[in-house]
C-alpha cells in the first residue's frame, strides 16, 4: 500500500499538504457557502488521521480535494509532491459502499484496477489477494445484493486497498453499519493498517471511533482546522482498559464539548441557540 513512498517528492516534505485551500459551493438558491475556508494541513506517511466535526463543516470536501475529485478555487494541494488527480494514487471508501450492483464482488475490485498497467490475469490475481485480506475470497463470485452491509463495506475496503494507494481516504465508512459490525470493521481495519501502513484520512462523526483508531485527530468547523491533537494512547485501543483510562475520557470529553459548542453556535444548525443540557437543568430545578 505504501508503493512509491518516495517517488516524486523531496525527502522531508509531507505526503499530503494543503495550503490556504478555499472551496465555495453555490447552493441551488444561488446562495454561496464555504466548504473549505483557507485551510492548511500537512499529513505524514504512515499516519492515521481522523477528521471530526459537526455536519457541514467541510470534512467530506476535504477528502475530495485531497484526491482531486474537487478542485479548490484558491490554495495549493499536493499529494506526493504533485497536484492530485483522481486515480489509483488514492483509495476511496464511501459510507454507502458504492459497489457496482451488476458486477460480481471480484469484478468490482477489478474495475478499480483498470487504470493500472496490469494484464487481466494480474488484475484477477490482485483482486483475489485483497479479497483474501478482508476474508471474503469465498464470495468472489457473488453479487453485492447477496452480501450483508458489513461484507459490502469489506469489499469496498478491499477495492480501495487493491490499487495500493499512497493515501486511503475514508468518508464515514462505518457510519451505516450496526454497532457490532462497526466495531469488528474497526478491528479489521486496524489489523490491515498495522501490517501495511499508509497515510489514512478517516472522516467520522464519532469521537470514540476517532480516538480508538487515529494517531492524530483533526477537529474541523466552518471549513477550518480548529484543533489538531496527537492521540497519546497505547495501541491496541479496543480493550476497556484504554477506553476507561483517564487520558481517553479527557480527550473524549474535550472533543465532545468542542463539537457541541460548534453545533449550538452555528446559525445553520437545527440546534442553534438551544442548549439541551441547560434546559434539562432548568426543568429539574
Amino acid at each position: 500500500m505504501a508503493q512509491g513512498a518516495t517517488q516524486g517528492r523531496e525527502p522531508g516534505t509531507p505526503r499530503l499538504s494543503l495550503q490556504g485551500v478555499t472551496k465555495r459551493f453555490t447552493r441551488p438558491g444561488g446562495e454561496q457557502s464555504v466548504a473549505l475556508n483557507n485551510i492548511s494541513l500537512a499529513c505524514e506517511d504512515r499516519t492515521f488521521v481522523a477528521i471530526v466535526g459537526p455536519s457541514g463543516c467541510g470534512k467530506t470536501t476535504l477528502l475530495r480535494v485531497a484526491n482531486g475529485l474537487i478542485r479548490p478555487e484558491e490554495g495549493q494541494v499536493r499529494l506526493g509532491g504533485k497536484a492530485p488527480r483522481p486515480g489509483p494514487e488514492a483509495g476511496f471508501v464511501f459510507q454507502s459502499f458504492r459497489l457496482i450492483p451488476w458486477l460480481t464482488v471480484r469484478r468490482n475490485i477489478e474495475f478499480a484496477l483498470e487504470e493500472l498497467p496490469l494484464s487481466a490475469a494480474e488484475r484477477k490475481e490482485r483482486a483475489l489477494h485483497y479479497l483474501d485480506l478482508v476474508g471474503l475470497a469465498r464470495v468472489e463470485g457473488s453479487y453485492p445484493a447477496q452480501l450483508s452491509g458489513g461484507m459490502r463495506q469489506r469489499v469496498a475496503l478491499a477495492r480501495a486497498l487493491a490499487v495500493e494507494p499512497m493515501i486511503l481516504l475514508m468518508d464515514e465508512p462505518f457510519a451505516s453499519l450496526d454497532a457490532q459490525t462497526r466495531e469488528l470493521m474497526q478491528m479489521e481495519l486496524m489489523a490491515i493498517w498495522q501490517r501495511n501502513r499508509a497515510l489514512v484520512l478517516f472522516v467520522t462523526h464519532s469521537v470514540d471511533e476517532a480516538l480508538v483508531l487515529a494517531d492524530r485527530v483533526v477537529l474541523m468547523g466552518g471549513g477550518q482546522v480548529l484543533d489538531d491533537i496527537e492521540v497519546p494512547l497505547p495501541r491496541p485501543r479496543f480493550g476497556e482498559e484504554v477506553r476507561a483510562s483517564a487520558a481517553f475520557l479527557e480527550l473524549r470529553a474535550y472533543l465532545w464539548g468542542r463539537i457541541r459548542d460548534l453545533v449550538l453556535s452555528d446559525p445553520a444548525s437545527d440546534f442553534y441557540g438551544r442548549d439541551p443540557a441547560a434546559a434539562q437543568k432548568e426543568a429539574s430545578a
Binding site: 475529485l69 488527480r85 483522481p86 476511496f92 464511501f94 458504492r98 457496482i100 474495475f111 478499480a112 483498470e114
Partner: peptide, 20 residues
Amino acid sequence: ELVEMARSTGAGRFRIFARI
C-alpha cells in the same frame, strides 16, 4: 454516487458511460 466512485478510480468519461 457510482459515477463519483468510478471517477475516483481515475475512470474517464467514456469508461464511466460504458461501464456505469
